[in-house]
Design a protein around this nucleic acid. Structure first.
Lengths: 145, 145
DNA sequence: GTAACACCTAAACCTGACTTTAGGTCAAGC
DNA sequence: GCTTGACCTAAAGTCAGGTTTAGGTGTTAC
């Protein structure tokens, strides 16, 4: 059993955030001893899942829904599986988007390296796609889509 | 030259967002004809960069900084390069984080698939890491870090 | 001439996720 | 017995990134 202060330190989260999560219903059925929150392994595991679901783009109220499902036992396995499945697809899509962003950033880095070497953007702006260095050509589309 | 309505359609953005960006200084020196915004190729390219920098996690006021630099010519090439370089690193780091999230999500999908097949979580919760299926073992760490 | 459109502004409003504030309880140490 | 430290609550405040509202202009279509 951990105090709120210990958990805050373990997860590098402010205490106020843990209290906020509790108020929003993210720790259903958490124990208290004379008013003081007691975090068990269950809440620690919940917090790991919260961080994961948050990182996957879920909102607090959707995470609350998930936490409620965990209190309902086997009856909600398929809903819970579905939530993770949907998140998995969302994160895969997000990574694909980030890859495009990364391609554009890499193109821009090359662009400014070249502009700095030239002292101006004249040569480079006039450059046709098929005159670009081979390793840059596939980045060009990201930057001009 | 495009009207705000045309640009909104091209980028699938609400008109109000384009006006907001303009108010925040993201289109420095944009032309107007009797009060009406005229988006040239310069603003279209700016908008592409805005979307990229936004996707990379930059705030509006930092994007504004970048747009101001573009009006200052060759003198700011190194600052601009530095901004893209920093963003590139940030996005690479973010993708690494997302990969961990994805591993956990995949582990959880497998977990619930197994729980659904078993009808309960008993067998699976008692399972030691080295009894997990080989393709799941490396996901386990993400879920229990 | 008037209705419909596409544009304009300033200012108020909204949302999510926290954080801060103000005031209170309780146990331990001096 | 009183201060310190860790906990508690409810309510208000904050911030980013827009969106909505209310009122106005200018051009074209009937």
């Amino acid at each position: 059993m951990y105090s709120i202060g210990q958990v805050a330190e373990m997860f590098h989260l402010p205490i106020s955030t843990l209290r906020y999560y509790d108020k929003e219903g993210l720790f259903p059925g958490m124990e208290r001893q004379s008013g003081i929150r007691k975090f068990s392994e269950r809440e620690i595991e919940a917090l790991r899942v919260i961080e994961c679901l948050k990182a996957s783009g879920l909102e607090i109220r959707e995470i609350k829904q998930f936490m409620e499902w965990t209190t309902e036992g086997a009856a909600t396995y398929t809903q819970r599986k579905q939530m993770f499945e949907t998140r998995r697809q969302a994160v895969e899509a997000e990574m694909a988007e980030l890859q495009k962003t990364l391609d554009m950033l890499r193109y821009k880095c090359w662009y400014y390296d070249t502009a700095i070497a030239d002292g101006n953007e004249d040569r480079i702006s006039a450059m046709l796609p098929d005159h670009l260095p081979p390793e840059i050509q596939h980045l060009y589309n990201s930057a001009h889509a």
